[in-house]
Simulated assay, not measured.
Amino acid sequence: MNTSSILEVWDYCVGKNQTIKGAALASLVLNEANHSNIFNWSIEKRDVALFHVRKMLFGNRFNNIAHCPKCKQAVEWDFYFHQMEIPILIDTPDNIEIPIDIPNYHIMVRLPNSDDLICKEEIQIIRKCILNLKDFPEGTFNQKIPDDLLMQINNKFNKTCKASNISYHLNCTECKHEWDVVFDISTYLWKEIDQWAKSFLRQICLLAKAFGWSELDIINMSENRRNHYLNLLNS
């Protein structure tokens, strides 16, 4: 993972939806531009990869801020990478098959992947994740998934996933309101990379104007040399 590859992924992601952004950002952990295979990874494996990318780029500490839904007061909290018990990527399977047995139904499901999430409709996502759908009469689950089955599927997904199922219970110090927030590593990492990329491009612009260097010349400089030249411009 180098500066050029991060900028290339950032450039590709601008204007894309969050599902595509998540897969593209996860590709940074593999040091390759092709992220088509990551669309077949479960969202859990994708998010494991995103946690490792984030650790490599920005460190172990995650700073968070939310606003109380009642009084709009800002609430800040932190957590650290090691607290999440994120597994090593190589130990995380591309996907996981889960059996679900309830009266009238025996199904095998897999975790959703990025390709599934493009559907957006929950019923279509679930249907794509049912591995033995052909064992049921044609048209089963086209319009509705029984509530008890849907609850079991969602419970299994939540228990199986760690990186993709993180939430925090917050308390507002101003009005004492309590609520739960979901932490989405894909959205979180994109905001950080977007801010970093825009800041870095401003540095490139300043140095190019001052010294006539090309973008590639500036990217290939060490961070120490870039900062030294920037300090000279500000002195």
Rank of each mutant, 00 (worst) to 15 (best):
F58D: 06
F58E: 02
F58T: 05
G59V: 13
R61T: 14
R61L: 14
R61Q: 05
I65F: 01
C68V: 12
C68N: 08
C68A: 01
P69M: 11
K70H: 11
C71P: 13
K72W: 11
K72S: 15
Q73D: 11
A74E: 15
A74S: 15
V75P: 05
E76V: 09
W77A: 08
W77N: 10
D78F: 12
F79E: 01
F79S: 07
F79K: 11
F81Q: 09
H82W: 10
Q83S: 15
E85R: 11
E85A: 15
P87A: 10
I88T: 15
I90V: 09
D91C: 03
D91P: 05
D91N: 11
T92K: 13
T92G: 03
P93M: 07
P93C: 08
D94M: 10
D94A: 13
D94C: 04
D94T: 13
N95Y: 07
N95C: 05
I96R: 12
I96W: 04
I96H: 04
E97R: 12
E97M: 07
P99C: 11
P99L: 09
I102W: 07
I102M: 01
I102T: 01
I102Y: 01
N104T: 12
N104Q: 08
N104E: 14
H106R: 13
H106P: 00
H106W: 06
I107P: 00
I107H: 13
V109C: 08
V109H: 07
R110Q: 07
R110F: 00
L111F: 04
L111T: 05
P112S: 08
N113C: 15
S114C: 08
S114D: 02
S114G: 14
D115M: 09
D115H: 10
D116C: 05
I118N: 10
K120I: 06
E121H: 03
I123M: 03
Q124M: 03
I125E: 06
I125C: 04
I126C: 00
I126Y: 09
I126T: 02
R127Q: 07
K128V: 04
C129M: 02
C129V: 06
I130A: 06
L131A: 02
L131H: 06
N132M: 01
L133K: 00
K134S: 11
F136T: 10
F136W: 09
F136H: 06
P137N: 02
P137K: 07
G139V: 10
G139N: 03
T140C: 06
F141I: 05
F141M: 00
F141Q: 01
N142C: 00
Q143R: 13
Q143A: 09
Q143C: 05
P146V: 14
D147M: 09
D147E: 15
L149V: 02
L149Q: 06
L149F: 04
L150Y: 07
M151C: 11
M151R: 12
N154A: 04
K156W: 00
K156G: 03
F157P: 00
F157I: 13
F157L: 00
N158I: 07
N158W: 13
K159M: 04
K159C: 11
T160I: 04
T160C: 07
C161I: 07
C161N: 08
A163S: 13
S164F: 05
N165H: 12
S167C: 08
S167W: 03
Y168C: 10
Y168P: 00
L170I: 12
